[in-house]
């Protein structure tokens, strides 16, 4: 499955360049460079404390990096400098993310969770709420379209019959899938997932792997293929679905390449098995 798409050169969607993040005296990320190719699944791996989540948080606007650049190259050729944008601007630029812990709007329904992710579009269509107030037809059409898209994703993750249930009441695995669907409803160019398989049983992990591949290939719904960047500890999934793997240790990149190559890299083995060797 991992060989499905070998990206052509010069088609990167995300370019991270000499990214550094310092917390007080601690240099959590130290000059990391990597790229995410358009239409690929790229995995960011590394031992605990390697700086994976910090890199992620810089890309998604949670942290402002101390130094470096993060460029998102969209399909239309425009480039967004993510390190300068505020939260909601990053989502609008085309990056969606999930967290290690589930952050659904637990008190709202499954469907509402997916509609919130389409708020930007809805809001534009409704003239910032004024149209909605007057019950204009444009608003109804936009809302109907948003519900259609949500329904498509619910079908893709197998939750269509739970649309009106409260999100917080779903089983854990379903909540994880719903989070991914919600992120996809923002229609991102790049989907960032922080340990999506954490806490899933083998069957659920399997479903997740299929879902991610179908998101990459654009077969999950009518939405276009979407590049995926993920942090994951479950090496089974990483090796099976990733097109490209970036390995971090102590805040630095120690290896990158296709999964097979990375698996046999001696620096990677050293980092994971704890040999006293620094790359």
């Amino acid at each position: 499955m991992s060989a499905a798409l070998q990206p052509a050169a010069g088609t990167e969607i995300l370019e991270v360049k000499s990214l550094s993040m310092r917390f007080g005296g601690l240099l959590a990320v130290d000059g990391v460079d990597f790229q995410v190719q358009r239409g690929s699944i790229t995995a960011l791996i590394g031992p605990n404390g390697a700086g994976k989540t910090t890199v992620f948080n810089c890309i998604t606007g949670f942290y402002r990096p101390t130094a470096g650049q993060i460029r998102l190259r969209r399909a239309d050729g425009s480039v967004a400098a993510l390190q300068t944008l505020k939260d909601h601007r990053i989502a609008r630029a085309g990056v969606a993310r999930t967290f290690q812990n589930i952050r659904l709007f637990a008190g709202m329904t499954v469907l509402e969770n997916l509609l919130i992710a389409q708020h930007i579009k809805l809001q534009k269509a409704t003239g910032f709420g004024i149209g909605a107030m007057l019950g204009l037809s444009g608003y109804r059409a936009a809302e109907a379209e948003a519900i259609d898209r949500a329904a498509e994703w619910l079908r893709a993750i197998g939750l269509l019959d739970r649309a009106d249930d409260i999100a917080g009441g779903l089983p854990y695995g379903a909540q994880r899938r719903l989070e991914i669907a919600r992120a996809m409803c923002t229609m991102p160019a790049l989907l960032c997932l922080d340990e999506p398989a954490a806490g899933l049983n083998p069957r659920e992990s399997d479903d997740l792997a299929k879902l991610l591949v179908s998101i990459r290939d654009g077969t999950a719904t009518a939405s276009p293929p979407t590049s995926v960047l993920l942090i994951e500890h479950d090496m089974g999934i990483v090796m099976r679905i990733s097109d490209h793997v970036v390995v971090l240790d102590h805040g630095r990149k120690i290896a990158e390449g296709p999964p097979d190559q990375v698996r046999n890299d001696r620096h990677v083995i050293a980092a994971y098995l704890g040999e006293d060797e620094e790359g």
């Binding site: 606007g61 939260d87 909601h88 989502a91 969606a96 708020h119």
Partner: peptide, 11 residues
């Protein structure tokens, strides 16, 4: 419910 998350979804 979660202001930061809402922001990350573009709100």
């Amino acid at each position: 419910q979660d202001r930061r998350m809402a922001s990350l979804l573009g709100i």
